[in-house]
């Protein structure tokens, strides 16, 4: 709750903040959108400054996060519309884009978006073989074949290929 504003609640409603990305781009964001990020909310509660500099989020990622925050701050949109916006938001995005988004939403503490993005990243990995994941993400297998076989042996149950039929 922003109640400490000196000018009273009427002007507090429409206030905006400027958020600057690490590469210097500035974004004008309504306060109601900004406070959906727990970190931004804390910063705004603590200091008068209306300019927030984010040293580890680039302009492209920040623009996406802000688009998300503004949509979710819009009271005119129904919950259903917001949900479908979320699905659209992550669909078709490259894994690397999602990676920067998950880092940014983690830093900014935008819990809902962080959840959606992490889930999308998991969906990409779901039902894939280890070899696929390694290839897709350029993970270099630095185990010796013996070491890898030993790990597989230790958790042999996880390598049985029985699939769940229902559920």
């Amino acid at each position: 709750m922003v109640t400490t504003d000196e000018k009273g609640p009427l002007t507090a409603k429409k206030k905006s903040v400027i958020i600057r990305s690490c590469d210097g781009d500035e974004f004008l964001v309504s306060e109601s959108a900004a406070v959906l990020s727990t970190s931004l909310k804390k910063i705004l509660e603590e200091k008068e400054d209306r300019l927030i500099h984010l040293s580890d989020i680039d302009n492209k990622t920040l623009a996406m996060v802000i688009a998300y925050l503004s949509t979710h701050a819009d009271d005119g949109l129904s919950d259903d519309l917001k949900r479908s916006f979320d699905q659209e938001f992550v669909s078709g995005k490259e894994f690397d884009v999602l990676k920067y988004l998950v880092l940014a939403t983690d830093t900014l503490q935008v819990t809902c978006l962080c959840y959606t993005v992490a889930k999308k990243m998991a969906d990409i990995m779901k039902n894939k073989l280890v070899e696929w994941v390694r290839r897709e993400f350029d993970i270099q297998n630095d185990y010796t074949p013996e070491a890898e076989a030993e790990i597989r042996r230790l958790d042999a149950w996880a390598w049985d290929d029985r699939q769940l039929e229902d559920d």
Partner: peptide, 23 residues
């Protein structure tokens, strides 16, 4: 913590399988 978050959406089996990806 973020990798944990991502892996939390996988089944226990799939999560355990990621142990062999690399060291």
């Amino acid at each position: 913590p973020i990798l944990h978050h991502i892996l939390s959406f996988l089944s226990q089996k799939e999560a355990i399988q990621t142990c062999v990806l690399s060291k």
